[in-house]
Design a binder for these strands. Structure first.
Length: 494
RNA sequence: GGCCCCAUCGUCUAGAGGCCAAGGACAUCGCCCUCUCACGGCGAAAACCCGGGUUCGAAUCCCGGUGGGGUCACCA
């Protein structure tokens, strides 16, 4: 493949917390774009903020990416031709580049103190001007004098000498050309007084060094892009193409955050969403796919992905829809897959022990087959499966009275239990015949027996079909609970 | 506030000047299936932000307003 046109994209998160779904979505778009075009997807850790970056976040981030199904061709763990892939390990590279900019006159040493800068900003605000710092006396200071000050130990930053006139145009693949007046851009910092790079400098430098052809990122970076373009030009780098994808918002149209319930990949995982469902939903969100279908594999998504179709609109995450997509994925799973998913959750919830589980793996699969159309989130599993295990149940008093207080039930339930006990074989059809038979003899609708029986054996008013449920519950357990209910019924005051 | 982006049903969207009395999906509401709940099937309600242009003709193009979002750090 032609190296000049080889597509290389990157996702460059800063490890300062959990991976936000807005973040994974842009990672997803990068991944999709790379897969679609036979390109390379690079992961780069932007940890230049020593204060906020943590090792734990790096691990969490990589774990979240892998969980949802995003693998990277180059980056931490996997390596690649442009190492290292963590900015804190690339400081020498930035220092060298800063030197180059200083030598060419594209940048300068700035000795203004933070207090001075704050005062300048304040005064600008008081006078109703925009605070645009242009370096004052330092911008054109004689290099020798600057050198002397540095020798004397005076702290400094390195700033970019932003042109005071003209415009910088971002050619955005989603929005078209976006024009910025250079006069509105200040002389931004390239190197901090700690001799470490700022985001704009490190990002622009790395994108060029790593030969990134397309920068696809959140639109919160759109206003940074003219600065990065200026850096690229000063460094003599070819410009990558840009695409700025919108944020993911909560239902109140504010940036999605924890107070909306869930905002990070881990939050959604904890709430019972499947990785493939989150992947599918997020990839569809605001991506401008044709609307006739909505369930796609990552491969299908990649095949159809078009960056220029991505909407410029902020996208509101609709958890109801995510939930329904999740339910589809749950339903599509085989009973065995669902059993594997459910097993650890059931053990953790205390519904059963490891041994019990190991003894009857097939039964769990059968239970899941019965339940899978009734759950939308994996977190619903323990509650909906729990009554298939264990012995006697604690009945809700009010509901018990509601179910067993009726005269017909009081008169016939004991007989029903007897007939069930006498059943020669415990099968769905045998149970059904017993129940319907008795109801027919008493000239009543079967539902008058079915509902209390359901409540007796499951402890709840809703479940899968009663007869198949009872077969799976097993004779012993069903009869135990039915007997419990019959006795409890006797004690009910009339 | 300055700068920038954006604007079709509640939400995600289809729509690239006539095919649109605007289509789909989720959610909502009915009906059917039925032992309950789901699943499934059928159906209903629901949108082109406003105002000016351009044009024979605009949801689609232009301008303005309004609204929403982003960003204004030695954070990324």
């Amino acid at each position: 493949m032609d190296n000049e046109t080889h597509i290389r994209v990157r996702y460059a998160p800063s490890p300062t917390g959990r991976l936000h779904v807005g973040g994974v979505r842009t990672a997803l778009f990068n991944w999709l774009f790379a897969r679609k075009n036979g390109g390379t997807f690079v992961l780069r850790i932007e940890d230049t903020d020593l204060e906020r970056s943590t090792e734990e976040s790096v691990e969490q981030l990589e774990r979240s990416m892998r969980w949802i199904g995003l693998d990277w061709d180059e980056g931490p763990e996997v390596g690649g031709p442009h190492p290292p892939y963590r900015q804190t390990e690339r400081f020498d590279l930035y220092r060298e580049a800063a030197k180059k900019l200083l030598d060419s006159g594209a940048a300068y040493y700035d000795f203004a103190t933070p207090e001075e800068l704050a005062w300048l900003r304040e005064r600008a605000r008081a006078e109703g001007r925009q605070p645009i710092y242009t370096g004052g006396e330092y911008r054109e200071m004689d290099p020798d004098e600057a050198g002397e000050r540095i020798q004397a130990g005076q702290p400094y930053t390195v700033r970019f000498k932003t042109p005071r006139e003209g415009q910088t145009v971002v050619q955005d693949m989603i929005r078209g050309p976006v024009t910025f007046e250079n006069a509105n851009l200040e002389d931004f910092v390239l190197m901090k007084s700690t001799d470490t790079p700022t985001y704009n400098f490190a990002a622009a430098f790395d994108d060029a060094e790593m030969e990134i052809s397309h920068v696809i990122r959140g639109d919160d970076h759109l206003s940074n892009t003219p600065r990065q373009i200026l850096i690229h030009e000063a460094l003599g780098n070819p410009l990558p193409a840009f695409a700025h994808v919108p944020q993911v918002l909560g239902p109140d149209k504010k940036k999605l955050s924890k107070r909306h319930g869930a905002a990070s990949v881990e939050d959604f995982a904890e709430r019972g969403y499947l990785p493939e469902a989150l992947f599918n939903y997020l990839a569809l969100l605001g991506a401008g796919y044709a609307a006739d279908e909505e369930i796609f594999t990552p491969e299908e998504l990649a095949e159809r992905f078009r960056i220029d179709r991505v909407s410029g609109n902020p996208a509101i995450l609709d958890e109801k829809k995510l939930r329904s997509v999740n339910a589809v994925y749950l339903r599509r799973k085989s009973p065995e897959e669902l059993a594997a998913l459910a097993a650890p959750m059931l053990v953790e919830s205390g519904a059963l022990t490891e041994e019990e589980l190991g003894r009857d793996r097939a039964r769990l699969a059968n239970i899941m087959a019965l339940l899978k159309e009734r759950i939308a989130l994996t977190t619903e599993i323990p509650d909906s499966v729990g009554y298939f295990y264990g012995g006697s149940l604690d009945y809700d008093e009010d509901e018990f009275e509601n179910q067993f207080g009726k005269e017909f039930v009081r008169e016939n339930f004991p007989e029903l239990v007897e007939r069930l006990t006498a059943l020669p074989e415990w099968t769905e059809t045998a149970i059904e015949e017993a129940v319907r038979g008795l109801a027919a003899e008493r000239e009543k609708g079967a539902r008058h027996l079915i509902h209390p029986l359901r409540f007796a054996v499951t402890g709840r008013t809703v479940s899968a079909g009663l007869f198949e449920t009872m077969q799976l519950l097993g004779r012993e357990r069903s009869l135990l609970r039915a007997g419990d209910a019959a006795r409890k019924m006797q004690r009910l005051s009339v």
